[in-house]
Design a protein around this nucleic acid. Structure first.
Lengths: 194, 194
DNA sequence: CGGAATTACTAACGTTTGTTAGGTAAAAAT
DNA sequence: ATTTTTACCTAACAAACGTTAGTAATTCCG
């Protein structure tokens, strides 16, 4: 039986509290209390509070980038690419809601150096989506007057699910992804038949 | 010459710093330093740090609700309503980027009582958009399988502009609103002519 | 002119913060 | 069986926090 290491427990618990109260408001003493130990004991496993935040943010970033790279490598059709990219994103985000929320909300509190590094990864992920839209334009299936704008808007939509998604809700991650794909590709307007 | 009251200066400066560093990370001493006074002097004008956050959040909420109510009162056509609602939202948000960002990002730090009040206003605003979608469905111009979902997605898109908009950028608020309206109503997909 | 606000100050308070030092008992490794 | 490592502890630190008390100078108003 492979138990989760204490370090992982600390990270998981921290993600939960960072999401609930915010990075600054959740103290080391809060985290320790949640684990039933003293604050000072945390330092047997981690170097600093900052290190916890970095671990959470960069793990999520890496996971998302790996997913979008795979999509751009494997699929050919732009529409299929977009559908899969959205599905993957929703799956990753809903799969670890605490970490995802911290990743999306608290990355600003990263230390100066790590912040620059993080933003590079963020841009890389955005570029992955950008490539899909470029493909789509070449294939004449997608059309956006401002592709950078479109990418940011798409990501805002898929990221917002962290604000309301609950595993106990009545939509599965795949259903959410489907809804989002539909909304992003066809919008609200009723198709004027013929 | 009507100078801006010191209290307003404090609120404006706080909004700027709350946006930059976050509510908890921006200290009273930071705010005071920005104004060239001592931290204790702030308390001649305001009751507490919380009061500043409350003022910022509720002002923005009131302004947005006033705008959506007006739209729902004045216009008849759902499409026109949505276009105007988005235009107003973008105008308000870009008009005071610091306050808007705090309103969108830092409202979670409101004290328990004020938080509940705030969420009510937030729901009211969402209801304003919901009504537009209901109108649109009745008029047979809009079609969304899950209207609550659609409202949240629309708002996520219009709110995300605080993350990248700059007054020095090459898009005016009206142009942004137009792009958003287009994206929200027709999506990415190329219209299959005939 | 004289009293009342207004706006700022210095000094200090009690808390909370992240973190370090040094120690102890149990478990694992040799 | 002895050493080493792991995982926790207590105690304490220096710094930063929001805020209060009390006071002096300036401005406003009758």
């Amino acid at each position: 039986m492979d138990t989760i290491s204490r370090k992982e427990q600390i990270i998981t618990t921290s993600a939960k509290l960072f999401r609930q109260k915010g990075f600054e408001a959740a103290s080391m003493r809060d985290i320790a209390a949640e684990l039933g130990i003293e604050a000072a004991s945390l330092y047997s496993h981690i170097k600093s509070k900052d290190e916890i935040l970095e671990t959470i943010c960069f793990r999520m970033a890496d996971e998302l980038i790996k997913a979008i790279d795979e999509v751009n490598d494997v699929y050919f059709n732009a529409e299929e690419k977009l559908a899969t990219a959205i599905k993957n994103h929703v799956k990753i985000v809903t799969g670890d809601l605490d970490s995802s929320t911290v990743f999306l909300r608290e990355w600003r509190r990263l230390s100066a150096g790590k912040l620059a590094e993080f933003i590079k990864l963020r841009n890389k992920y955005e570029d992955g989506f950008m490539q899909i839209l470029v493909n789509g334009e070449n294939e004449n299936v997608f059309d956006a007057p401002d592709k950078k704008f479109a990418v940011l808007t798409i990501l805002s939509a898929v990221n917002w699910i962290t604000e309301w998604y609950s595993p106990k809700g009545n939509m599965t991650p795949d259903e959410i992804a489907e809804h989002l794909f539909r909304f992003i590709t066809t919008g609200l307007r009723v198709k004027t038949t013929a």
